[in-house]
Amino acid sequence: MAGPTTARRGGGQSDKPKPSRQGGASPGRSRPASGARTGQDRATPRGAARGTAGGGPGKPPRSAPKRPVKRPAKGAGKAVGKVRGKGAAPARSPLSRRRRLVLWAAAAAAAGAAAWWTFYGSDWLCVTRVSVSGTVVLTPGEVRSAADVPLGEPLAGVDTDAIAGRLRERLPRIESVAVERSWPHAISLKVTERQPKLLLQKGGKYLEIDSEGVRFATVGQPPPGVPRLVMETQDSPSTRRFGPGRLEQEGARVAASLPPAVRKDTAVVRVRSYDGISVELTGGRTIVWGSGERGEEKARTLTALLKAAPTAKHFDVSAPSAPAASGG
């Protein structure tokens, strides 16, 4: 019985030709006859074949000149996509923008009206109390009464300048006052009172005079530690030239310029003329001060003079560059 293999034609060799080895022709493969074209020759272009004819080297065919490639500018594609692409957002119409502006304006007007009503029309932020601070001689009740703050009015609408004006007019003892709104329901009054520097006796009363020469109060009993002002200017030419009020101011100016150690021992400031002002201290000591000008310089000179001549009774600083001390 014959085996599974079958006999091969051509003496048992494969019909598939083997590739030729270098240096010799492959066995079993016949060369093509002269003049016949192989498959490789058929694939060669005619121009190349003509170039190789005659035994010379073949020249490659001339290729067409390359045109420069124009690249699109950056972002051009994106811009075209935005304008022409399917996903581009539709342009807003002027009507829609106008509606938005109208809505915003209406909302702002409503918010403004609500704020105005909250501060000026409602009862939520009204004045219900008045606080007072800084008083020394005056009482808080006196200040509240003179201020006349309108209770129950909207806090935002209270005229603080008018309140301050009423206080300075009705209470001359007040030198300055700060009127502030204390949210949500109060008005705050911070008072600074005038301090008496001199006392001018009129009958059985005493007029209190501050450092600016302002008469701001009348008292029955003299406050302790405040010197008296004595005016002896009836026959002085300074009275006709400056007036008694200006001379009182110069006396108060001298009292305010005294050194603290001297001020506490001062009993009397005597004014005879504009530049004829003297100071009488305890222990029978006197100071010739002159006018109220150059007060700081005179105060420094007097301090040095008191240290140099502590037992002297008479001091002259009317010319601070040439002071003098005597007595004692």
Rank of each mutant, 00 (worst) to 15 (best):
L198Y: 01
G295F: 03
S211P: 03
M1Y: 11
R144D: 06
V80Y: 10
L198N: 00
P310F: 00
I277A: 00
V230K: 11
D235Y: 13
E250I: 13
L103E: 14
T311F: 05
Q249L: 08
P227W: 03
V143I: 10
R300L: 08
T118Y: 14
P323W: 00
G284R: 07
S63I: 13
G12K: 01
A304S: 12
G121V: 06
R99E: 08
T38G: 08
A49C: 03
G23I: 03
A186K: 00
Y206N: 04
S20G: 14
T218C: 08
A2T: 15
Q221P: 04
P196I: 05
G87N: 15
A114E: 06
E232M: 09
G284C: 04
R228E: 15
R168M: 12
A304C: 01
R228W: 08
F315G: 00
P320E: 02
A89H: 15
A299G: 06
E180P: 03
Y274W: 12
G283K: 01
P172F: 03
L198W: 02
A261V: 15
A322N: 10
S236M: 11
V136F: 09
K70E: 14
T239Q: 14
L306P: 01
A147D: 03
R21F: 02
E193T: 07
G23W: 07
A73K: 13
R29M: 10
A308S: 09
A107P: 02
I187Y: 01
V262L: 02
A76L: 15
A107E: 10
R37A: 12
E169K: 15
G243E: 11
P237K: 10
V177I: 08
V226I: 15
T218W: 07
G203E: 03
G290K: 00
L167H: 02
S182Q: 09
P244Q: 12
I287Y: 00
R241S: 15
P310Y: 00
L200Y: 07
P154T: 07
A64W: 05
D159N: 09
R42Y: 08
T301D: 02
L101Q: 14
P140D: 12
S291M: 02
S238P: 02
A109Y: 04
A319V: 10
Y120W: 13
G87C: 05
T266C: 06
V279H: 00
G276Q: 13
R240M: 11
T311D: 13
D159R: 02
R97C: 04
A88L: 05
P222C: 07
R253W: 12
S122I: 05
V214M: 13
P310E: 01
L302E: 01
L305S: 08
